[in-house]
Nucleic acid binder design. Sequence first.
DNA 1: AGCACGCCGACT
DNA 2: GTCGGCGTGCTC
Length: 730
Amino acid sequence: LKKGHKILKIALDVPVNKLFDYMSDDQNIKVGQYVKVPFGNRKLIGLCCEISNQSEIDKDKLKLTINTEQEVIFDSSMLKLLYFVSEYYHHPIGQAIMSVIPTRIKNNPNSFRKKELLFKAKANLSHNIINNFPKRQLRLRKVANAILKENLRQSDLKKITSNASECIKKLEELDLISSEIFIQEIKRDRIIPPTLNEQQKNVIEQINKYKKFKPWLVHGVTASGKTEIYMSLIEKQLSNSCDQVLVLIPEINLTPQLEARFQGRFPDKKIVVLHSFLSDIERLDNWREAKNGHANIVIGTRLGVFTPMPNLNLIIIDEEHDPSFKQSEGLKYHARDVAMMRAKNLDIPIVMGSATPSLETWYKAINNKQNFQYLKLQSRAVDSSSLPTINTIQVNDKTKLEISKKVIDGIQKRINKNEQTIIFINRRGFSPVLVCGSCGWVANCQRCSSRMVVHLQKKRLKCHHCGADVKINNSCDDCGNTDLFPLGTGTQKVEEVLKYHFPEAKISRIDRDTTHSKKTIENLYKEMNNRDIDILVGTQMLSKGHDFPYVSLVVVLDADNALYSSDFRASERLFSQLMQVSGRAGRGKIKGEVLIQTVFPNHELFESLKAHDFDRFSNKLINERKSMGLSPFSFNALLMVQSKNLEIAKQFIFDVSSWIKQSSLEEAEVFGPARPALEKLKGFERFHLYIQAPSRNQLHSVIKPWVSQIRQHPYVNRVKWSIDVDPMDF
DNA sequence: AGCACGCCGACT
DNA sequence: GTCGGCGTGCTC
């Protein structure tokens, strides 16, 4: 090793589970900085993870780094977390690290958001001076007058005249104006915190007793005032100006209202948000505010769990049960579980809240596993709002797709009272498909083994898996018959039936087809709050914690298909969703009612729901899971393999399956290989292999050597494969 | 992953 | 003859 040279261990975005060694003579280089390096015959950007004077690699193979960036991206505690995450989820270290860095830095490490300037008149700028400007320089006068009148934002310059920036330059040369960085004034209407009830106070007091690592589950019915509890805990944690708190929330919940609510509660604290609707540069800006410790409160969706925060001392996870905390592509992490690891590493408390906790968390909490503490809120925070009455409506196979008379009457009653109705359709696996009346042919997707969904008003068929979009044929592909009709209930069809029954009512629909942007969702909430909508028809999106104060009726159609789903989590999800949508009713002063159409009104799920008894149904599910050895009584991983070539996929999955079956006779059970519900997706033939172990340690001790073995398989580069630890959709 | 190398078949 | 298809192997 040359004198003055160091060895850097660098994380690169390549699917090889190791760090790469490079030489550098940069004396100031620090762990966590970005470096550009030659890799093969391309140049890559990577993160310096270790600095050493040793290398296992032949000296003549070691290359020199090209350059390094000043900014330190991750400190050692973040790197420790990322090492752990890479191991836990069996994802290559370099890809794990690189995938959680804001994309903007990767593309252009030196990009900072351009600060907008604000131009101000200096004391010597006066009408007199302006009048003495040369007569011909009308534009200069115009700009000067504007600034004299009031401070001028850079973005407003063009409104005055086209060459305003030249005029500004001139005025600055004449020393008549000054400029400073423009800071958007945020309306900070201080929100006076509501008086807390006894149970809220009790919860807060208990949590505040501990300063060190402790996971808490706050289990409170909808509208029991969980957010106010978070606020109070945050207030306590932010006693110093440099203290930081991380709040993680589900994807759909992050609205400007929430941000405003936090800002109102903490008017003198810096709050930043991190979610997918931000532009890259905004995201980077906010991320940097968190990293340099300026931001006191970081509110983010799942990726937010990887935000560097030097003075983090509390993590809050709202709606802990929400599936959007699990990333399903690339590094398949669960933000809640990563947050647990992070809190443990930092020895700080972590608070999870939900009205319908995930079975896993609930089970851990009530049994104090992993140090978990369980806290329950029994009643709603606002006294006048009581829980809605829940009723089932018996339907049979023939009538289950129709809207029953009781529902129609209920809706009419609300319309008369100027109250609102929400119609919830559990669309999972249920959409209108195109069927041939004479031979029974069904329109399938060409690339996936799924059915095409009918979109009537556009007269098109769409595949909800790959996005394929084709015109509806007027005749059957198989027999040529023209008797094609849509079968099943979709939100559109329900909307049509409702229009027929209530021609005067204002009906809106919320689902994946109507709601691709944040704006439409926000508009919808606005319209609901202005009572511009009478009936809102929608899917799972409706069950995500939004307040609709004028909704007094919630109707659930199509609830049953989850009861006999092959997915063992389907009934947990349905129960949770129904409890959540039920919580949408009667949030204000109006008493709420929930009507559920079902073929099985006596099913335990509906009985528990009617009694608002989460524990009752959860205990039943826990017993089922226990007897079947499912999560949380086992620890699981799912190997997914896909290839355009069926034979290659088959060969690969059967090979690796036989490897693990041989090596894990004692520690784990292996199921499969099997074809998933969607055998073919986007033209790829798919296979799954499911691994189940009685303990976390056993699962990992089986998988770790196996994954290295998989990476040696001759077909590894001919198939797409990945491992999902703690999978959610199996 | 992304790229080069190398081995085959099918073209001006 | 060589162009390009894909299978294989490697990257500090």
